[in-house]
Nucleic acid binder design. Structure first.
Lengths: 193, 193
DNA sequence: AAGAAAATATTTACACTGGAAATATTCTAT
DNA sequence: ATAGAATATTTCCAGTGTAAATATTTTCTT
């Protein structure tokens, strides 16, 4: 048997992550506790310590999984060799859809002080997620000076715009009817290449 | 004496808000508790209940104060009759500065499920804050179709961009050197009117 | 195969938290 | 002055994260 799959419970770590994501989805971050999570899986309330160390460790694993899901959602409807403008639109819509579908997880992923920001797996997933955005930020005609910061500038712009839009949506800061009428694609400046 | 200013403690409500903001600044949202807050002011741990009802009530008051501070920070360096482009730059920088200076408060202001989103005072301050952004969003040449949603579109765009930039900054998602080199003004598409 | 060592899980205990309920104190109004 | 409202305290409870000691199972070494 593989080391990770056959101890007392049998892959408790993965089961705890799954249960936590469910609780997070149902009851929000305030409703998530190590004890509820352990209960849901059927182990003692200190069992998670072996796999995550503490609460921050569990939340780090959740955030890490979230970034992987977000990256997937952005590429969800991509088809092979689709032109970059199409990929860009799909990725932006995927980013917003993820936030709307998993608002509490999304909030956790960008929260301060709740996760271990130096966790290698988390950092790796963050970088991979940003890679998708860096890709779709290429060739944006933003009217910037053409210097060695051009690509960085485009990446920061596109991430800022879509992230702000998503967060303001789920925070309830936009009116509902305006949110429906004006998607992320509608509010971005129309970019003609 | 005014009803609000002379009971047992003497304006306990305001003192609790002030103490809470201090704790929030020092120890973050996780470090803030009703009991610590009450301790700091020198009252019993259930005294805050009379003024805020519960924890959500206190956090609502903090968020409300935060929006007022944010609106002030955006207009901080405005001078009378300064042209709109100048006001726009100052307001955007003020928005980001507020987030950087009060990251935990900023996070609370846009958090889900922590505040009472139907609180009249909070809503009022949110609307007032958004009013500043609506002002600076006027006359932005974004290349959008000129329809009856033009101004709404510009407002949503400018708020999304600056909010996303601010949040990604304090969440540590931008590299530090790039953050210094490329401010919110640098990453926005260059808008020539 | 046998024992040592490591990994995993439980039990117990503790300090801290938000909140409910009953009580006490102070202010306000009549 | 006294009634009633507002404010504050005391006491209590369920729930939380986490540390420490212990128990169980798996894996490694020989």
């Amino acid at each position: 048997m593989l080391a990770e799959k056959s101890y007392h419970h049998g892959n408790l770590k993965q089961a705890l992550v799954k249960a936590s994501l469910d609780i997070l989805h149902k009851d929000g971050l305030a409703g998530l506790s190590l004890r509820k999570c352990a209960d849901a899986v059927g182990v003692s309330h200190t069992a998670p310590k072996n796999h995550f160390g503490n609460m921050a460790g569990l939340l780090t694993a959740l955030a890490s999984a979230g970034y992987a899901m977000l990256a997937d959602d952005m590429r969800k409807d991509w088809i092979a060799d689709s032109p970059r403008p199409d990929r860009r639109d799909l990725a932006l819509q995927g980013y917003v859809s993820f936030a709307v579908d998993h608002p509490d997880l999304f909030e956790l992923m960008f929260a301060r002080g709740r996760t271990k920001s130096d966790d290698p797996e988390l950092m790796s997933n963050v970088v991979a997620c940003f890679g998708v955005l860096a890709d779709i930020a290429q060739d944006l005609p933003l009217g910037h000076p053409n210097d060695d910061l051009t690509s960085t500038r485009a990446q920061m712009f596109i991430w800022s715009a879509v992230h702000g839009y998503a967060q303001l949506c789920i925070a309830g800061r936009f009116k509902k009817d305006e949110m429906k009428r004006l998607t992320i694609l509608d509010i971005l400046p129309h970019l003609k290449s």
